[in-house]
Design a protein around this nucleic acid. Sequence first.
DNA 1: TTTAGATTCTAATTGATGTTAGATTGAGTA
DNA 2: TACTCAATCTAACATCAATTAGAATCTAAA
Lengths: 205, 205
Amino acid sequence: MTIKVTNTTKKSSVTRQLILDAAAKKLSRHGYHGTYLKDIAESINMQAGSLYYHFNSKEALMQEVLNKSVQLIHDIVDYEVEQLSETPTFPDLLRAAIRGHLIAILRHSDYTLASIRNYGQVPEAVHNAAQPDRDAYENFWRNLFEQAEKDGVIRTGVDKHLLRLAIFGSMNWATIWYVDSGASVEEIAESQADLFLNGCYRKGV
Amino acid sequence: MTIKVTNTTKKSSVTRQLILDAAAKKLSRHGYHGTYLKDIAESINMQAGSLYYHFNSKEALMQEVLNKSVQLIHDIVDYEVEQLSETPTFPDLLRAAIRGHLIAILRHSDYTLASIRNYGQVPEAVHNAAQPDRDAYENFWRNLFEQAEKDGVIRTGVDKHLLRLAIFGSMNWATIWYVDSGASVEEIAESQADLFLNGCYRKGV
DNA sequence: TTTAGATTCTAATTGATGTTAGATTGAGTA
DNA sequence: TACTCAATCTAACATCAATTAGAATCTAAA
């Protein structure tokens, strides 16, 4: 058996990437247990056994897909937020964060759907390995709302915790209907930000 | 082979229900391909083969779980809405609908998690079979917002379609974090309704 | 008590999957 | 040219899942 150390050969890393992409695609469509190494391999014209040159096991491969999916989102959100002016307002920040998250999960939907759909379906070891990355990303949002509350721009009575979870839900759910909606990512982001900031209700008819 | 016709015997229908419940539990935790008939059977002290007396195939069993999950939600939402006064306001209606949906998916989470997590992961035949029920339920929400718009209580610029999907996302996502949150279903419902009605932003600091 | 029908079990069968070891290929290098 | 090593393939192995046929058991009515 070949022991795998970090391999930096050109060809190897290209193939690795091909495998990861193919795995993400399968994983997003068929779930962990419905994703077969044979299918992954076939979709990039390889044999199932050959995958073991690049990954030690199915679990290891899946783990890397899940990790990458979270990092991808985090990176894009960071980027979108950094594009803002020096002293962005809370609505600006929220809009940018939502836009980043949606861009990530809708444009790279194979990875994020793989992550979302298999949350709690993969073996625990795989699940736990991605937790640190998830926590790091979650903290970004926690901080966003904590700062906003300090600044007094959150309406009294709004639970920061439930607010964050509601926004997460709305965004992540978009992976399910986005393709059929015809709307652009930017439109959806704008709409969701506006909704969470101002609500849908017109008072005093 | 025994051909199954609709069987109304007492014992049979009780066992059927046991099987469905067990299947929903497994399905919600391990996904379609990770759910094994053997496990379902064992969890209710039966043999895998015996399941075939009640269901023609794994697909047929799964299909019934998914159908039931949607019907369950629809029924409870209808009930909550009917409890309202003769002429409920839009906020009242929305609150009741959200409460009903959350009660359904959080109290009977095995069925609804089974449905949500396996959306697009089950074989297409199974998926399609549950579509009519899903459509019927979706129409309830469509009508809710259409009526509200006619009544002029929706803020201009709000996209009814995206609004509905955002609310769905927030609610359904709650299945993931509910158990760890410590919040009650009623609190979450109240909080989400308030959020979607009025937003989180306090204007004019 | 007998018996027919309903329900469950038992023991295969068939097919597919993750994994591995060893053979094979192919590109660069001494 | 020979050699090395990365990369891939091939052909197995062991396991396990869905399904089935028929035997066994249980239940309620005659």
